[in-house]
Amino acid sequence: MPALEFEKPIADLETRIEELKAYGSSSNVDMTEELALLEKRLERLRSETYDKLTRWQRVQLARAPGRPTALDYIGKVFTDYQELHGDRAYGEDAAIVGGLARLDGQAVVIIGQQKGRDTKENIARNFGMAHPEGFRKAMRLMDLADKFGLPLITLVDTPGAYPGIAAEERGQAWLIAQSIQKMTRLRIPVISVVIGEGGSGGALAIAVGNRVLILENAVYSVISPESCAAIVWRDAKEAAKAAEALRLTAKDLAEFDIVDEIIPEPKGGAHNDPAGSSDELKKALLKHLAQMHGMDKPALLASRAERFRKLGVFEEIA
């Protein structure tokens, strides 16, 4: 796993420990004491790094190479995943995946924004940036879930909806709006989880859930730090500053009730322990599904509407 810039000291120390271990066993010199010391130091370094990440570092973690993608979680958290393709109108958009699966035996419909795991796959998946047909595909999967009364799980991970000529021509704004609208009408339990990057309208289009959860190192924002910096400081390199200003971390979002729960990630982030992270996600999904168990259709609709009605911070004028 290539380490992120701020993870390098940790990676370096890990390498040194490995080297020392190898030296110890090959040369029969007792290194136990030294090793224990170094392990302790590694632990401290890890805590120092991951316990007080800056917002910009979180953004980097949210985008880290090797961070589990939607399909990775689908494979680890669910069973019997059957992917369904196409929007039944225009085409197939690989930036959004979805289909039927089982969560601890319960049949569910999943929709996920899918980034590539390497350059080649990223190109095929358009870096997780959907075109209108992707949102149309998501909408028809929502209809499927609604028709059969199956819970819907959406996994959010996109830099945003694709800002290209063809996307605009095919009505990007309309499809995002329609997808949001579709979600306001669903009479099923809907859980949305931001697993990596929640990029603006493209993220919200599939994130209007009864519950909106977020992984500890995921981010969710109205605009990417780079775009914000480009607008404000006319320089995308000021992204770190923009990330601070935008308050886009899980903790920030929880403060404003934009998310209902932060799902913890193993120390070092999900990319360092995909299995551990999947376990946490599964636990959270099961818990929230159980909480909604037995709610009738009007109650599911009403509670979702109520959840979003309260969002916003403003002052009442007397």
């Binding site: 609208q181 979600m183 919200l204 916003g312």
Partner: peptide, 12 residues
């Protein structure tokens, strides 16, 4: 920030 984004859903 994301509070603005949420208004899209609230109005809908």
């Amino acid at each position: 920030g994301a509070l603005s984004l949420m208004q899209m859903a609230k109005t809908t």
